[in-house]
């Protein structure tokens, strides 16, 4: 690792859900923790997210979903990353995720699930430890 190395994270809101409080807070928080955060705003399609993750060569992708559509949207992002040979990029999911779906998300290949009340430092540490830096 060189001194210039910065961890890069894509924070995205897939689907139509417009509640972006969590995504914005995480974006600010990771920036202040020294990350370079690529924030892409609302209504991102899984295709856009996968492409952005690859072009930006991020160390992690954070998806924020509160609409209940987390299973299908996350699954699609993971599939697309896999198809493009980028399954090594860890995908984190935050938002309103019922307990019973946590495990299912992890089985799909999600690296971590973070719900309301998680301190940003915990997310930052998680990304750091998964980035292989």
């Amino acid at each position: 690792m060189t001194p210039d190395r910065k961890l890069r994270v894509l924070v995205a809101k897939p689907g139509l859900d417009g509640h972006d409080r969590g995504a914005r807070v995480i974006a600010y928080g990771l920036r202040d923790a020294g990350f370079e955060v690529i924030y892409t705003g609302l209504r991102q399609s899984p295709e856009q997210i996968a492409r952005e993750a690859i072009q930006e060569d991020v160390d992690a992708v954070g998806l924020s979903i509160l609409s209940g559509a987390h299973m299908s949207l996350t699954g699609r992002v993971l599939d697309l990353l896999r198809e493009q040979g980028a399954e090594d990029i860890p995908v984190l999911v935050g938002g309103l995720i019922p307990d019973q779906d946590r495990e299912a998300l992890c089985e799909l290949g999600v690296a971590g699930v973070f719900t309301a009340g998680t301190p940003i430092s915990e997310v930052a540490d998680f990304i750091q430890s998964h980035a292989g830096a």
Binding site: R31, F35, E36
Partner: peptide, 13 residues
């Protein structure tokens, strides 16, 4: 950010 060295990159949105 001059404080944290991090950055918020939002142009591609």
């Amino acid at each position: 950010s001059p404080f944290s060295g991090g950055a918020l990159l939002g142009d591609r949105l």
